[in-house]
Design a protein around this nucleic acid. Structure first.
Lengths: 202, 202
DNA sequence: CACGCACTTGACCGTTCAGTCAACTCCGGT
DNA sequence: ACCGGAGTTGACTGAACGGTCAAGTGCGTG
């Protein structure tokens, strides 16, 4: 039972954790409350519905990740090195989660977004919004890479989305196969897509 | 209410349809029975549990698709043309589904696999199995392309999985953004990954 | 000290869930 | 004509679901 922090934050943290490990449909409000050490009335004091909790949890989860994204994608790092570090951080995060939970869990944004996007417009929209935020980091990196003459392509927004799809694909496959090794293929795939010289082995 | 065919097949068809459009967690056995025009007792006569229905529905859905896959990937078609036709068929299928349901639904195998893979080993395994079957078509195509001197890479199984991840990524993004246009990017991405000459515009 | 409000409590609601069951119908084989 | 088994029916179960509520508690402010 999570007892750190205030109730609302505990509910958000617990929700994203359980939904990430299981799924929106498999996690009940009762489960979340129990694991967060809160009562149901408190839950509905902070969130009008389970669905709105999901939206808030997505946003909260992103807020937790953003500092690391800023660190990885700092302009002080050479652009291709940023991408390489991001690939490494994806692997590291998935490995850490598997250590904690015992299974590969993939990307929480994508899993939740995919599960609910045909049923819940608010969740779909928040999920899309977070994708856009991630793409912005990628776009800046490839734009800087082109500026430095490291890559030839100039269609930066398209490229960024292409790279993000590649990351999604890797994380989906890693979760379905419950295997981290797929993630090692992320960097070479990205290098091929951007048309950079083949990466040196990590 | 679906009244064609025998009860078991109707249950399978209805199940995959509803799960594809919504999600495993959002679709109840009652819904499936109602839409299939069957009684609950009949459901549990054919399937021991909702989870085992999901596995059977994945397999049945694949069986329905296989003939088209065989047609697209026939060795009589030039290898890169096979890939191009597959990209086109992915777009066509998603467009048709959106026409019918009103939203982009993505890939049923992936959606169901992703939702349940941490909770239901049988579903995860079936989903993985179907991925492998699709990869086999892709692998033969790229092997033949290399044999014809159209591409340089020789790591065919790795390539096939790389291409499949690219397709997954596109379909996930198309569903989350509820937009078919992303799928148009599939072919150029695949061409970049295999290192073929840029495709002519479709 | 007293007021008000944010937050908490735990019982409660009606509905829906997956799954069960005994009785029944129908049909092919003998 | 009879039998047995596959398939069907619809009522049923107990648990779990999302959500509500009236009655509290406790704390910061005046």
């Amino acid at each position: 039972m999570d007892t750190h922090g205030h109730t609302k934050q505990r509910l958000l943290d617990t929700a994203i954790q359980l939904i990430w490990e299981q799924s929106y449909g498999a996690v009940s409000v009762d489960h979340i409350c129990e694991r967060a050490g809160a009562q149901k009335g408190s839950f509905y004091h902070f969130f009008p519905s389970k669905s709105e909790l999901a939206v808030a949890a997505l946003e909260a989860h992103w807020q937790q990740r953003q500092p690391e994204m800023d660190r990885i994608f700092t302009p002080e790092t050479p652009p291709l090195e940023r991408l390489a570090r991001y690939c490494a951080s994806v692997y590291r995060r998935q490995k850490a989660k598997r250590m904690e939970f015992g299974r590969v869990c993939g990307c929480a944004f994508t899993c939740l977004g995919l599960e609910l996007s045909t049923q819940d417009e608010a969740v779909r929209h928040k999920s899309q919004q977070i994708i856009e935020r991630i793409c912005r980091y990628l776009e800046t990196a490839v734009r800087d890479a082109a500026g430095a003459g490291l890559i030839a392509r100039q269609d930066f927004p398209v490229m960024a989305r292409e790279l993000y799809r590649c990351i999604i694909g890797v994380l989906v496959q890693a979760k379905i196969e419950n295997d981290l090794e797929v993630i090692r293929q992320l960097k070479p795939s990205i290098w091929r897509l951007i048309g950079a010289h083949p990466p040196v082995a990590r």
